Computed example of a mutant assay.
Amino acid sequence: MMDWILPLALVAVGLTVLLSVLLWWSHRRFAQLERKCDALKLLQKAAQSTNDHLQREMAEIRTGALGVGRRVKELEQELELLSARQDEVKQNDPEARLYNRAMKMVELGADVEEIMRECELPRAEAQLLVTLHRRSQ
């Protein structure tokens, strides 16, 4: 009976050492994983903070863009109204119509005599229109 006690004791000691090493290794590995988990939690918290900040900025940008869009639309409507009024003033001003017609004739190559005759303009004004047109080219 004593013959098997020594080998059994050696196996028990070996198993105890092996279990102690495994326990030490498991504890060490658990500590490493716990540190990694803490680091990931910090990263997640920083990412969440950055995400919240970016969402607030996007909301501000969206609000600003809507305001700018409304203002652009108002300005476009105002420009259209002013353009329509300007066209109306041009149409109702007989002198402007004469000068517009005279400028069209100059652009089409009419001479001073023809402009004077068709638009009933004085020679000096007809010559001025022709001279201005030549300089602009």
Rank of each mutant, 00 (worst) to 15 (best):
M1L: 03
M2H: 14
M2Q: 15
I5H: 13
I5Q: 11
L6K: 14
P7G: 07
L10V: 15
L10P: 00
L10Y: 04
V11M: 05
V11Q: 04
V11S: 08
A12D: 03
V13Q: 01
T16W: 04
T16R: 02
L19H: 00
V21K: 11
L23A: 13
W25P: 02
R28P: 11
R28I: 06
R29L: 10
R29D: 07
R29I: 03
F30L: 13
A31P: 05
L33W: 07
L33K: 02
L33Y: 07
E34Y: 02
R35I: 08
K36S: 13
A39V: 00
K41A: 11
K41N: 10
K41I: 03
Q44S: 04
Q48F: 14
T50G: 05
T50F: 06
D52H: 10
D52C: 03
H53C: 01
H53I: 05
L54W: 07
L54T: 08
L54H: 09
Q55N: 07
M58C: 14
A59T: 04
R62S: 12
G64P: 02
L66F: 05
L66P: 00
G67S: 13
R70Q: 00
R71M: 00
R71F: 10
L75H: 06
Q77D: 06
L82E: 03
L82S: 15
S83T: 11
S83V: 03
A84Q: 11
A84F: 02
R85K: 15
D87I: 00
E88N: 13
V89E: 10
K90H: 15
Q91C: 01
N92V: 11
D93F: 01
D93N: 14
E95L: 15
R97M: 13
R97G: 15
L98Y: 00
A102R: 04
M105F: 05
M105R: 05
V112T: 14
E114S: 02
E114T: 12
E114A: 06
M116I: 10
E118V: 10
C119L: 03
C119P: 02
E120R: 14
E120S: 12
E120G: 10
L121F: 09
E125C: 02
A126I: 00
A126K: 04
A126V: 04
L129H: 02
L129N: 00
T131W: 07
L132Q: 12
H133I: 03
H133E: 13
H133F: 03
R134E: 01
Q137L: 14
